[in-house]
Design a protein around this nucleic acid. Structure first.
Length: 497
RNA sequence: GUCCCCAUCGUCUAGCGGUCAGGACAUCGCCCUUUCAAGGCGACGACACGAGUUCGAGUCUCGUUGGGGGCACCA
């Protein structure tokens, strides 16, 4: 094992799309593993597929990484001693490495056409040959002959020459243990395409070897081609890293998570109003546990306690409900001030309730009070907008039809509102606080011979416009004396007698 | 077809030979309560199946079944 070396791990996304939740989790594990072991976390852009990779996607991924708070020690924009950190900028390195293997007789040119390869494979399949890989057709072509054909312009690929006596390959995996692959499965796979570009299995290994990667933490889907990658390490004479293959993330139907299951990209969750900390917390727990009991694992704890041997082997199902629960737990843990600054005000601004920039309509105490009542009612950030809107409608609230029908339209409602107006008028501006407001209204239902439910329901709709609202006392305090009384008087006019 | 991986409540998981199989989310009920939440208490609910090994198996072995992944001049 290479564990005694300084830990160096990498996250190497392909910019063929946005950062997916599965990729995000892989990134989180790599980051956390590096931090927990005082190692180095490297970000590398695996963009060897020119047709599908875009610069735009690269930027989206970098942005998502920053939003997730996964800072990298080496990589794009921060540099490092093992760069460049984009595969397209490393082409010469792959060529050099391949040339070296060729010179050393560990790789050889293959002139088989794709058609021949397909035919060979079909034939192997037809005779039920357990070995369906490359038939090593060009393995023993005389070097001089090969040279001649190359010089004549014949297209060729470069294949790795797997030693015939290699024997079984065992992958030492930190989450799966030792996984043995039969030597028979290994074939002389292509390391360089006929167009002169390296294949993934070759490029990644060259990179990981040159970058001194000690632990390769990646998706389960790579386990099967790890043996061939090991062949490359061996040919290169580089130490084989420790692998850690983590299971996939599935959708609610047990199928691999995809678009049809809803949001799959990190930025969609950011835009939906999830907290980065909560999102990282949830994803970290999807396949890893601290102790089996703890659900709230802040980033710093993750960075300290993360360990590969608590990584689960089974695939996990993405559960939006649990994400919600964790997100809400993070809000609940915030102080009113923090909630106000990080959640409430930004949402009010982007919803246009508050000016996009500059001074706010109220003082800090007002937002803190609002935060205190909205916090336990918020699952995702944008929830605050709908719940705070009634505070921004001036003296005439928009009355919810159904609420009016079930409250103000009921007999006696006018009397309730009138009584409330009288009681509240007795309070002057200086005494306009939730506690005093509640005290002033408290005795009224009994005096009027009405249930609290009916009385407060009528007042609530009159002042807040809806039978569902944050606590009444605080709501009226936030509304202010004059606005509250204006709304109540307005409702008196339409309330049933 | 072949190779590999996986298998504990609906979901995420704890468990690393002897546990009343624990926690969290979800669901349901009760409490609190002027609405909605939040909170408190409680209920429901799992070792896929079959053989072994063992005094004893969720834990070890093999098989079955069921999922997933690889076998590309994709990554």
């Amino acid at each position: 094992m290479a564990d005694d070396r300084h830990v160096r791990v990498r996250f190497a996304p392909s910019p063929t799309g946005k950062l997916h939740v599965g990729g995000a989790r892989t990134a989180i594990y790599n980051w956390a593993f590096a931090r927990a072991n005082h190692g180095t976390f490297i970000l590398r852009i695996d963009d060897t597929d020119p047709t599908r990779s875009t610069e735009e996607n690269t930027q989206i991924i970098l942005r998502a990484m920053r939003w997730l708070g996964l800072d990298w020690d080496e990589g794009p924009e921060v540099g490092g001693d093992y760069g460049p950190y984009r595969q397209t900028d490393r082409m010469q390195l792959y060529r050099d490495a391949a040339q070296r293997l060729w010179d050393e007789g560990k790789a050889y040119p293959c002139f088989c056409t794709p058609e021949k390869l397909a035919a060979d494979k079909a034939a192997a399949e037809a005779r039920h040959d357990p070995f369906q890989g490359y038939q090593r057709t060009c393995r023993d072509i005389d070097p001089a002959e090969a040279r001649r054909r190359i010089d004549a312009g014949e297209p060729y690929t470069l294949r790795i020459k797997v030693p015939l006596d290699r024997g079984d390959v065992v992958v030492h995996d930190a989450v799966h243990g030792d996984v043995t692959f039969n030597a028979r499965e290994l074939d002389d796979f292509i390391i360089f395409r006929s167009d002169g570009t390296p294949t993934y299995n070759f490029a990644t290994v060259v990179d990981d070897a040159m970058m001194g990667i000690t632990h390769v933490i990646r998706g389960d889907d790579h386990l099967s081609n790890t043996p061939r990658q090991i062949m490359v390490y061996e040919a290169l004479g580089a130490p084989v890293p420790t692998f850690a293959h983590i299971s996939m993330i599935l959708g609610p139907d047990g199928k691999k998570l995809s678009k049809r299951h809803g949001a799959t990209s990190v930025e969609e969750y950011r835009d939906a109003g999830y907290l980065s900390d909560a999102f990282v917390n949830y994803l970290a727990l999807l396949g890893w546990s601290l102790d089996g009991e703890t659900t709230i694992v802040p980033r710093d704890v993750l960075a300290r306690e993360f360990s590969l041997d608590h990584v689960s082997k089974n695939p996990s199902t993405f559960d939006p409900k649990k994400l919600d629960a964790i997100n809400q737990a993070y809000y609940l843990a915030m102080s009113d001030r923090e909630f106000s600054e990080r959640v409430l005000v930004p949402e009010l601004r982007s919803a246009g309730l508050e000016a996009a920039e500059g001074a706010l309509a109220h003082d800090d105490a007002w937002y803190d009070l609002l935060s205190s009542i909205l916090k336990p009612r918020t699952v995702v950030a944008p929830d605050v907008v709908g719940k705070a809107r009634f505070l921004y409608e001036g003296d005439e609230v928009e009355l919810d039809e159904k609420s009016v029908e079930k409250n103000l339209a009921k007999a006696g409602a006018r009397g309730f509102v009138t009584a409330a107006v009288e009681a509240l008028e007795a309070l002057d501006d200086g005494a306009w606080h939730a506690e005093a407001i509640n005290a002033a209204l408290e005795a009224l239902p009994e005096r009027l011979g009405a249930s609290k439910r009916k009385f407060f329901g009528a007042v609530r709709v009159a002042a807040c416009g809806n039978q569902v609202s944050p606590p009444l006392g605080e709501s009226l305090e936030l509304l202010g004396r004059s606005c509250t009384l204006a709304r109540l008087r307005c409702a008196e006019g339409i309330a049933a007698e």
